[in-house]
């Protein structure tokens, strides 16, 4: 059997040990966002219209005593998302909702994370279908992120805005600093 010389494998071993040494343990936490006001500014046209909210995640505040300085977001997945009506128009003429997350960071691409299509009739609150594969870790790690709700309308609304309230829950995997 041919043996590898230390010059060959030693750098890999050192790199691996350094990598393991720098990475602390991971913990999973729930992060809830409630009653986020998504405004669709009128006039609105038949078809898809977008509303957005600039959000800053307060991870230290949400974790309380469980937070340790230096914790970093390793991964984030959407667990649940729900939209309710924020004005008297309710879900009138709404055909579908799509929820996405975006960031100003050039290296972070927009991700669709949940939707409902078609919207069942007669509801005042609806749970969206979540895409479990949507990776939101890079978004959650940013100082601010954009929550975008696309609303497909079946007719024009020339007067006034539409308001929807969004609740969602992220599963955050946080890595501690060793």
């Amino acid at each position: 059997m041919q043996h590898l010389r230390p010059q060959t494998w030693l750098p890999f071993v050192i790199f691996s040990l350094a990598f393991i040494g720098c990475s602390g343990p991971e913990t999973v936490h729930e992060y809830k966002v409630e009653n986020l006001e998504i405004v669709l500014a009128g006039p609105l046209f038949e078809g898809p219209n977008a509303g957005q909210f600039e959000l800053t995640l307060d991870i230290p505040g949400a974790l309380g005593d469980a937070y340790a300085p230096g914790m970093k977001v390793a991964d984030a997945r959407l667990q649940r998302a729900e939209v309710s009506a924020g004005d008297s128009l309710g879900f009138a003429q709404v055909r579908s909702f799509v929820l996405s997350f975006a960031s100003d960071n050039e290296a972070v691409a927009m991700e669709e994370a949940a939707f409902v299509n078609p919207l069942p009739e007669g509801l005042e609150r609806v749970a969206l279908n979540v895409a479990p594969e949507a990776e939101l870790g890079p978004h959650a790690a940013e100082e601010k992120l954009y929550v975008v709700l696309d609303v497909d309308l079946s007719e024009d609304f020339w007067d006034g805005d539409r308001l929807f309230l969004l609740n969602f829950e992220l599963s955050l995997t946080l890595q501690s600093k060793r």
């Binding site: 078809g47 898809p48 579908s96 799509v98 939707f115 299509n117 279908n129 895409a131």
Partner: peptide, 28 residues
């Protein structure tokens, strides 16, 4: 029925309506 994004590589998103879909993303 209205077209949906049936070719999306993420199967969970194949029922997203095509009308309204963001085909251009993240331009700086």
């Amino acid at each position: 029925e209205p077209k949906t994004d049936i070719n999306n590589p993420d199967a969970a998103l194949q029922d997203v309506p095509l009308k309204g879909y963001r085909m251009l993303k993240d331009f700086v």
